[in-house]
C-alpha cells in the first residue's frame, strides 16, 4: 500500500448533508459519530461541516426542491478525490414520499440523490442503522484509495 492510500485510509473526513428526510437517518448518523458506543473516530472517521475539508459526503433524505442546488454546490466544493454515500431509503429511491402513490403525487421531491450527484455507496434502511453507516463508509473507501 502506497503512502498515499495509507494516509487516506487512516484519516477520513465525513460531511453530512441532510436534504429533507424525516430526521431519523440524520440522527442515527450523528449518533454513530457522537455516541461513545459507536464512536466513528476509532475507525479514523471524523465528522466535519466544511466541504473543503471533507472526503466523503453522506447524503440523507429525498432531496427537496430547495435542497437541490445547495447539494450540487456542496458537492462541487469538495476537492477530489471524493466519494458520496447515499444513506437511507429516501436517498436511494425517494422513499415513501416519492413512491406511496397517493391521489396527488408530491411535486417537491427532486431526488433520489443519484439523479443529482454521482453516488458511490448506498446504505439501505429506514432509518439507517449506525453500524450500516460505518459499513457504508468502508464501502466507499476503495474509490478514495485508488484515486489518483
Amino acid at each position: 500500500m502506497s503512502l498515499k492510500s495509507y494516509s487516506r485510509a487512516r484519516s477520513v473526513h465525513v460531511m453530512l448533508v441532510y436534504t429533507g428526510g424525516c430526521n431519523g437517518c440524520d440522527i442515527e448518523i450523528v449518533n454513530c459519530i457522537f455516541s461513545p458506543k459507536y464512536d466513528a473516530e476509532q475507525y479514523k472517521i471524523f465528522l466535519t461541516w466544511n466541504p473543503r475539508e471533507a472526503d466523503v459526503l453522506v447524503v440523507t433524505g429525498p432531496v427537496t426542491k430547495h435542497n437541490e442546488q445547495p447539494l450540487r454546490e456542496i458537492y462541487k466544493a469538495i476537492p477530489e478525490p471524493k466519494a458520496v454515500i447515499a444513506a437511507g431509503a429516501c436517498a436511494l429511491m425517494g422513499g415513501v414520499y416519492k413512491n406511496i402513490n397517493g391521489d396527488i403525487p408530491s411535486e417537491e421531491i427532486m431526488g433520489p440523490v443519484d439523479k443529482i450527484i454521482p453516488v458511490d455507496a448506498k446504505v439501505p434502511g429506514c432509518a439507517v442503522r449506525p453500524e450500516d453507516v460505518l459499513a457504508g463508509a468502508v464501502a466507499a473507501l476503495p474509490k478514495l484509495l485508488n484515486a489518483k
Binding site: C22, G24, G61, P62, I100, D103, S106, A127
Partner: peptide, 30 residues
C-alpha cells in the same frame, strides 16, 4: 426547505397506509 408535501401525498390513501405515512413526518417524534 424540507417541505415534502406529506398532506398532499396522504390525500386518497387507505387509512392504514396514511397512518404509517404520518410516522415518516418526523424521525424524532414518529
Amino acid at each position: 426547505v424540507n417541505h415534502r408535501g406529506v398532506e398532499r401525498i396522504m390525500e386518497g390513501l387507505p387509512v392504514e397506509k396514511a397512518n404509517s405515512l404520518t410516522e415518516k413526518i418526523c424521525g424524532i417524534c414518529s
